[in-house]
Design a protein around this nucleic acid. Structure first.
Lengths: 252, 252
DNA sequence: CGAAGGCTTGATAGACCTCAAACACAGTGG
DNA sequence: CCACTGTGTTTGAGGTCTATCAAGCCTTCG
């Protein structure tokens, strides 16, 4: 997908990823929306597995996800990977680099992705002029933290079944919030290895649990497409309560 | 401990918990320090196990830890507890409630503690007048998130040994940063159950691992007192790298 | 001295891991 | 059109780290 294609189709105010995302966690004024649209950025396409930012970097810009699917991860000395969050279009996963100099983790493309790099200076200038946007950005990083906490509880205290079900509920809810999921069906370019690395499990075990979830007719997941066949029972298994996502409009 | 005692001893500018804490993550000007000192708050003493803020609350104030030791936690439906962070004097664990209406977790006293409740309005006013303080507070919540990430990796991908060693390294480093640990020796009013709940383990297993760490002459931990006997080897076991704490002065 | 909270120990069990190989499927190239 | 390759998924057998259950023990404190 070429840069021009992206710019002409994707960045219309009505479907600009950043505005869509912001609308899920705040209610910006028309002027603030315009200011957000005017943020300068340089677009870059990344292949699967490429790093958007690397552990140890000292970024001078933030990455806005425009298309694709990315993750935040860390490696142990033994080389084991822990994924700490997934990001969808509209997210700015390294917003924190505004106030934390050194990256203590990496952000990588789970699927081929397009990102817009926004200079720190531009963001600093924006939030200086629009305190409400500063508050929204701060809020966004706080919601990130809320998601970390939810994942921690899952990894630390819940069964593999519950964890996997919960992850699928969370992603579905977030995709629906930005309007990227028709009904309970969505494109989810994720592998079983990715799921394993995000939940502290092995791919083998993830595979076995997914089979059970399919057998119980709760989900359908293959070739990058997820369909929740029984939302009520799945969210029950997951003990899913979307409060922690702190969405303004909680799309049921 | 009475309120008067606290006020007369603890809140001298030179040893005010909030100023000490802030100094570990930022470099406020004299004027900003004064403004921080002038924050109004009402002091309250809490017994062990009392909630400072509860899951589901909609706080209108933030809690500054003045004395003691508290934790952030969540319960599963089955009643299992996951502790997500520990807080020491100077911390404001629910600073996030400024921008996130509903608490998605509780904060409780691990040991008897004294907290100062600061009205949201006072904080909002402060950060409106001092953008640098706003940045510092934002940074503080970002560092909280960094700690969550570090814990997630531990729980998801590391052995019980590594996790326990890491927790002890982290707490020691943080206590040292605020000047609450002489050398590698500190008062740590924590039970083995608390450790288990913070690392996704059972108390029984924590007990066994602690015994090994003692046998290997790495630590001494009993009756609320921790002494690291071999920092180098312990941080090796822990794969401890304090970068993620983002302290301004990294006390070795 | 009794009670309570925390720590320790032993025996057993199970969820999840490890290793290893086979299978499915899409894309590529001859 | 069909091998060929690569990535991702599935299956099987065995192993282990950590959980569970159940007592007993030690301090502290009223």
């Amino acid at each position: 997908m070429s840069v021009t294609t992206v710019q002409s189709n994707l960045l219309h105010p009505d479907r600009h990823p950043l505005l869509r995302k912001i609308a899920t966690i705040a209610e910006p004024t028309e002027e603030e929306r315009r200011a957000l649209l005017n943020l300068p950025f340089s677009i870059k396409s990344l292949p699967q597995h490429a790093d958007i930012v690397s552990d140890g970097d000292r970024p001078t810009q933030c990455a806005l996800i425009l298309e694709g699917f990315t993750c935040r991860y860390k490696l142990t000395h033994a080389g084991k990977r822990q994924i700490m969050s997934f990001h969808i279009p509209g997210d700015i996963p390294d917003l924190q680099s505004l106030y934390i100099e050194v990256m203590d983790h990496g952000i990588g493309a789970v699927a081929p992705s397009t990102v817009g790099y926004i200079p720190h200076d531009a963001i600093r200038d924006l939030i200086r002029r629009y305190p409400a946007i500063a508050a929204t950005f701060w809020r966004d990083t706080l919601i990130d933290a809320a998601v970390f906490r939810q994942w921690m509880m899952g990894i630390g205290r819940r069964s593999a079944h519950g964890r996997i079900a919960h992850l699928l509920c969370e992603l579905t809810t977030r995709f629906r919030a930005i309007g990227a999921a028709a009904d309970y069906s969505l494109d989810l370019p994720i592998t079983q290895v990715d799921i394993a690395d995000s939940l502290g499990l092995t791919p083998v075990h993830v595979n076995r649990v997914l089979q059970e979830l399919r057998r119980d007719d709760l989900i359908e997941l293959r070739r990058g497409h997820l369909r929740i066949k029984n939302w009520d029972r799945l969210s029950e298994v997951a003990e899913f309560d979307p409060t922690y996502l702190h969405l303004t409009q909680t799309a049921a």
